[in-house]
Design a protein around this nucleic acid. Structure first.
Lengths: 196, 196
DNA sequence: TAAGTCATGTAAAAAGTTACATGATTCT
DNA sequence: AGAATCATGTAACTTTTTACATGACTTA
């Protein structure tokens, strides 16, 4: 076992620092609250919780439920909270980026611009759907935390600041899509005109 | 072996579609040309080239050199070029994003704003260094391709479009950092003032 | 002489995805 | 009756990182 938690471990601790959650809850919360910058499947979450528990960063107690399967509710420990806070301010290097859209864009010169156009438009649609969901999240956050969102010592701030980042990035990505569409259709337009 | 190439496989094909390269060259080109949206170490590249070769998407010939180790120069095949072009326009889902800065931001409410501030400033510095390097790349691209950069059927377009995306994203990330710094220092400012 | 570049690989481990596995309840 | 939700896990596989391994030549 490595000396430090993985990024996923810290993601889970970040959620547990706000409220105790079961593995199932963590899976939902991760995708709902951190989904636009970190994700994991439940098959990765359950083993990770075991590691956190062995390290003493979380504890759990079994909760029996009526009409539902029993669950294990995890809570962050003092040591876990300290490890998390240390990690937040520790120097680090960003993980290697993986933007498949750009990988495809790099080789778009090989295909007819009209086909490339379809790919870019599909991407734009995905982005706009995402932006729509951000709006709902912002409304929900504002209702839950109010003016506390701008207060960096309140838990609401984390969700707000990361959401803001997501919105800014997605908007800019849509702008890039628009530029791509213009450039690509300009070309097909010229091609069509020259054939007339 | 899976039926399709991995993303890395297509990244390498994308480079080889422009010119034949050795494994070593591919490693350099990958980080120089695609470094801000896809990376790989040489330990991943060499095995991947073997897979591409077994699939018939690339061929190689040994080139003996004087005063330097021999090298294997890889070229894309017709089948490889077709597979690449198909992949460029195929529907897909973006790989899961991994933005560690946001993971840390989510838990920043746990630490004193002054410490969080340091982290954000360090991030901003990294981003501005990146932006500086983009400038050099743009100059180099413009010299090499001229007005062909805006022509979607010329190879220069791929590099130009992806670079543009990178510049737009990084600028927006810097703007987010500035907002964070404002919000975090506002808070420390208030704290300091209230203690006076 | 030490560090850096050119050049190619393998091994081990960590991180992440997909598939397998089970079972009760609730909603359509 | 079938699909969705709640709930927890394991197994197999792919992808990525880190470390190991070698060796000639060039530059400071």
């Amino acid at each position: 076992m490595p000396t430090e938690n993985s990024s996923l471990g810290f993601a889970l601790l970040g959620l547990l620092a706000r409220e105790p959650l079961s593995g199932y809850d963590l899976s939902q919360s991760l995708s709902r609250r951190m989904g636009w910058y970190w994700t994991a499947r439940h098959s990765q979450i359950y083993p990770e919780l075991k590691k956190l528990q062995k390290r003493g960063h979380v504890t759990f107690k079994k909760v029996e439920q009526q009409g539902r399967p029993d669950k294990k509710v995890y809570s962050i420990t003092t040591a876990g909270k300290r490890a998390l806070a240390d990690w937040v301010v520790a120097p680090f290097e960003e993980a290697q980026p993986r933007e498949e859209m750009l990988l495809r864009t790099y080789s778009m010169w090989l295909v007819p611009p009209a086909r490339a156009l379809e790919q870019v438009k599909a991407h734009q649609t995905r982005l706009e759907e995402l932006l729509g969901r951000y709006d709902e999240v912002e409304t929900r956050l504002r209702k839950k935390y109010g003016d506390d969102l701008e207060d960096p010592s309140k838990p609401g701030f984390g969700g707000y600041a990361t959401l803001k980042y997501g919105v800014m990035q997605r908007r800019e990505q849509v702008a890039w899509c628009r530029w791509m569409i213009e450039t690509l259709s300009g070309e097909t337009g010229r091609a069509k005109r020259s054939k007339q």
